[in-house]
């Protein structure tokens, strides 16, 4: 039985590692300026953790194979070095990993969160609500009109609760169901939650950030590849959570301007 356990465990360990080693399941290639740091971090961790995983499983299998169900009265021995050895090894190996990945690896995080958006970054407001995203561009005046929750009315398309009648700034605000952005230009996304918590996740951008009601959060990123990418909601927000998505449309600069003009004319 012991031998069988060892064999099964080895098979399981290798089978578990196989899809990882052959990169069967991976994120799509990243299209952001900060993403590569995260990807490197991930693959480093994958190497070290994968090593630890296989190491631990194979050692377990080997010891069980060798030391299970020996003949009665077999002489029992102790691991040379004993607990001291084990503890030192743990401290050295894991300590090193914790330091390497935990401490040095923080720059990937810093890239995303500890840098201010460039002043000329394109400001877009994202609103998450059950169960759709809406995006608002400030328009020619470069100012967002104020939000009046009481004026929100899906019926006549007033998703943000704007008040064009009294508020000039809101009159030229462009509202869109898809997030259109120019390529290679930094975007500063101002996040606003209409009802409950939601989240903004674009795999290709390597960006995930929750919308928290009552908190003005923001993220900034630069997309480097033209194309349409899926924006999904990753924070449980109710019965339509699974169905809450929108598209990120990364366009060439002039296409983007065309798009803006066209949207503006629709107002």
């Amino acid at each position: 039985m012991g031998k069988l356990f060892a064999v099964v465990l080895v098979i399981i360990a290798l089978a578990s590692a196989y899809p990882i080693a052959t990169r069967m399941y991976v994120m799509p290639e990243d299209i952001s300026t900060h993403g590569h740091a995260i990807d490197d971090q991930l693959s480093d961790t994958m190497k070290e953790a994968g090593f630890s995983f296989l190491g631990a499983q194979l050692v377990l299998a080997f010891f069980v194979f060798k030391f299970a169900q020996r003949k009665e009265g077999a002489k029992l021995t102790h691991l040379p070095g004993g607990a001291k050895l084990v503890v030192t090894v743990a401290f050295i190996i894991v300590g090193a990993e914790v330091f390497a990945l935990g401490v040095l690896g923080q720059k990937a995080w810093a890239n995303v969160y500890f840098t201010a958006p460039r002043p000329d970054a394109l400001q877009i407001q994202a609103q998450a609500g059950q169960f759709a995203f809406y995006f608002r561009y400030a328009g020619v005046d470069g100012k967002f009109g104020a939000i009046h929750p009481d004026k929100i009315d899906e019926g006549n398309q007033n998703f943000f609760g704007l008040d064009p009648a009294n508020d000039i700034e809101s009159r030229d605000d462009i509202v869109s169901g898809e997030l259109a952005i120019p390529v290679n230009r930094e975007v500063h996304l101002l996040m606003h939650a209409k009802d409950v918590g939601h989240s903004f996740y674009v795999r290709e951008l390597r960006i995930q950030q929750d919308f928290v009601p009552g908190l003005d959060l923001s993220v900034h990123f630069t997309a480097t590849k033209i194309g349409r990418y899926e924006i999904v909601c990753t924070q449980l927000c109710g019965l339509g959570h699974y169905n809450m998505k929108a598209y990120l449309n990364v366009m060439a600069q002039d296409d983007f301007e065309k798009w803006m003009k066209q949207k503006a004319s629709e107002l």
Partner: peptide, 16 residues
């Protein structure tokens, strides 16, 4: 990790 390695290390030389 220490716990894991203690468990593993103790298996060495046992008669499980």
């Amino acid at each position: 990790t220490i716990m894991t390695l203690i468990w593993l290390g103790s298996l060495y030389g046992a008669n499980i």
